[in-house]
C-alpha cells in the first residue's frame, strides 16, 4: 500500500463535490450558532463526535471489505432525515465517479452497479480507500477530517472568517480527530462478529432539523 494515497483522498481539492456543501454550517451561521472561531470550534467538535463518528465507523467497515450494501442500509438507519440521506447519496455518487477514475477496481464497479444513484458517501469513500490500498483506520481519518474541514471552509466563505483562525480550529481538533477515527476503526473491527449493529449510531438532532429546513430555503449559498 501507499500511505500517500491517503493525502490524495483527504485533500479538500479531491474532485468529489464537497466544495458545494457546508455540512450544516450555513443554517448554523444564519441562526447565530456559528459567529466566530470559538463557536466554529464548538460546532465542529459536536459534529465530529456525532455525524463524524458515524461516518468514520461506516467508512472503516467499508474499507475493511464488509458488504457495502449492508453498510449502506446501516447508513440509512443512522440518517433519519430525508435531506441528509439525499445529500449523502448525491455526494456518494460524486465520490464514486472520482474514485473510479483515480483508483479503479472491481469493488467500486460492483457498488456503482448496485447503487447507480449513489450509496452513502462514507461507504463509497471506504470502498475507495480499500481500492487505493489504504487501511480501515485511514478511511476513518479521511472521512472524519472531511466532516469538519467542510464546515470550516464554508464558515470562511459565509462569515468572511479569518482563514488562519479557521485552520487553527481544525488543528486544535486534531486530538479529537485521532480519537474519533480510532473509535470508528475499532467499531468496524467488531462488524465481522457482531454485524453492523457494532457501528456507532450517535445522533445530532439539531443538525438533522436544520438540514431539513435548509433544504427548503429558496436562496442559499451551499447545497447542504
Amino acid at each position: 500500500m501507499s500511505r500517500a494515497a491517503l493525502l490524495v483522498l483527504a485533500d479538500g481539492r479531491f474532485p468529489a463535490g464537497g466544495h458545494a456543501h457546508s455540512g450544516g454550517a450555513e443554517p448554523a451561521v444564519a441562526a447565530g450558532h456559528i459567529k466566530d472561531a470559538v463557536t466554529l470550534e464548538r460546532f465542529c467538535r459536536g459534529r465530529l463526535h456525532t455525524a463524524g463518528l458515524v461516518a468514520a465507523g461506516l467508512a472503516a467497515a467499508a474499507a475493511a471489505g464488509h458488504d457495502p450494501l449492508l453498510l449502506d442500509d446501516a447508513a440509512d438507519a443512522r440518517t433519519p432525515v430525508p435531506a441528509l440521506r439525499t445529500t449523502a447519496r448525491k455526494l456518494g455518487r460524486q465520490m464514486m465517479r472520482a474514485a473510479r477514475a483515480t483508483w479503479p477496481g472491481p469493488d467500486l464497479d460492483a457498488l456503482a452497479a448496485a447503487r447507480p444513484r449513489g450509496a452513502h458517501q462514507p461507504v463509497v469513500l471506504g470502498v475507495a480507500a480499500r481500492s487505493a490500498g489504504l487501511e480501515p483506520l485511514d478511511a476513518a481519518y479521511a472521512v472524519a477530517y472531511e466532516n469538519i474541514s467542510g464546515p470550516a471552509t464554508a464558515a470562511v466563505r459565509l462569515l468572511s472568517l479569518d482563514p488562519f483562525d479557521a485552520t487553527a480550529v481544525l488543528a486544535r481538533l486534531a486530538a479529537d480527530l485521532d480519537r474519533v477515527a480510532q473509535q470508528g476503526a475499532d467499531a468496524a473491527a467488531r462488524v465481522a462478529l457482531e454485524g453492523t449493529d457494532a457501528l456507532p449510531a450517535a445522533s445530532a438532532p439539531l443538525l438533522d432539523i436544520t438540514a431539513e429546513a435548509h433544504a427548503a430555503w429558496p436562496v442559499r449559498l451551499f447545497a447542504s
Partner: peptide, 20 residues
Amino acid sequence: VETGACPHTAIRDDISANLE
C-alpha cells in the same frame, strides 16, 4: 447545479455535480 459560492470550481476544478 448548486456551487457552494464558487461557480468556477463547479465548472473547472470539481465537475462531478455538473457531469451528473
